[in-house]
Design a protein around this nucleic acid. Structure first.
Lengths: 198, 198
DNA sequence: CAATTTCCTTACCAATCGGTAAGTTCGCTT
DNA sequence: AAGCGAACTTACCGATTGGTAAGGAAATTG
């Protein structure tokens, strides 16, 4: 039964951290959401920071294993890039709390001043860069240029996922549903056009 | 002298909210940064929420006035879109606190559950959509499709700006400086390629 | 010169934060 | 049946949060 409680706490924490951020979410809220006291949470995770750390680790592992699975099934580098990006889009849309937490992490670790190398997703970025650099006619891109390119697509994806509530608020449910349906194709178009050299 | 103090408080608040978010930044910190007590801040702004509201309003006004200025100088719609996007990129890079605050707002107003229409930047998005829909061969895009398209570029920009500390941490100062230098051109390439129909 | 307003202070408040200490209640082992 | 550790609870703790109340100094106004 302990395993279950732990998983429930992690789920609740994922929701709370996504919605309110690390500072805004209280461990009392998180525990309360599944009918426990904050001391029960502390019993399982030791501290708020450790709980948050486990969540970050879990998210990174999920994303990276997704990537590895995708890379195994596609060989052509451009198709691989396309598959990876739409795969990430689908994943983030399905688990938008994860996208929110990662976006917040991007904003907060400036303040938290974590030591270098502590970031879980660098291998993921590195593999994207190396894929771009094997695309025909793009082999001699500098690391910075390839990274900038990759980052444009990643930015599009994450920004869109994270904007859901605001977009729905501003343009209505129907428009956002249509956007969501189109986005995958639009992303593919964007990538293809970018690499379709005259 | 009051005007000066007010402006100093706004600047300090902008920095703090950008770095720590609405919940993470305390009014005591903000006031302390210019050598005052939090009660002085409350005297000028009434409450934390009102202070934050003024900052949001200021940011939106700045961006929108930038847009209006740009639109007056360029006529061709594709060139206009390009100029607007690179203009926004430059602006956000120069005032990265603003980009951070807007990104946080995107994440937090889900939790704050603000009433619809309360968002300051809708007119800005609307004008971008209308520009896209006047680009040759794109006239019959639906609103959702045009918005998705615009959002891809905006996402690229804001995500990049906000990632500065993390990118610097992961890849070093030099790589990030190179990325920053390239990003404007890469953005232009992305836009041009996207609309360059075979 | 007197009165008022602006700007800021110290003093205080209840609420909430993350975390510690000390049980209690349970199921499992020996 | 005795013991034990895991899973929780209530009861606290000091620190910090946003905000109120009251007053003082100084400039502005009558």
């Amino acid at each position: 039964m302990s395993k279950n409680t732990r998983e429930q706490l992690l789920e609740s924490a994922r929701r709370c951290f996504a919605a309110k951020g690390f500072y805004g979410a209280s461990i009392a809220d998180i525990a309360d959401e599944i009918g426990l006291t904050k001391q029960a949470l502390l019993h399982h995770f030791g501290s708020k920071e450790k709980l948050y750390g486990e969540i970050l680790k879990g998210i990174a592992e999920g994303i990276i294993s997704d990537i590895i699975r995708t890379r195994a099934h596609v060989t052509n580098p451009l198709a691989q890039l396309e598959a990876l990006m739409t795969g990430i889009l689908d994943r983030q849309l399905a688990h938008s709390e994860e996208a929110q937490i990662l976006m917040r992490e991007l904003l907060d670790n400036r303040a938290r001043a974590e030591q270098a190398g502590n970031w879980y997703l660098k291998p993921f970025l590195d593999s994207l860069v190396s894929i771009v650099r094997t695309i025909p006619l793009e082999e001699d891109l500098t690391e910075a240029r390839a990274l900038a390119l990759v980052y444009q697509f990643l930015g599009s994806i994450n920004y869109f996922v994270v904007s859901e509530p605001t977009l729905t608020q501003m343009f209505g449910k129907e428009v956002h549903a249509a956007m969501r349906q189109d986005y995958s194709e639009q992303l593919r178009l964007l990538i293809r056009h970018r690499f379709h050299h005259g």
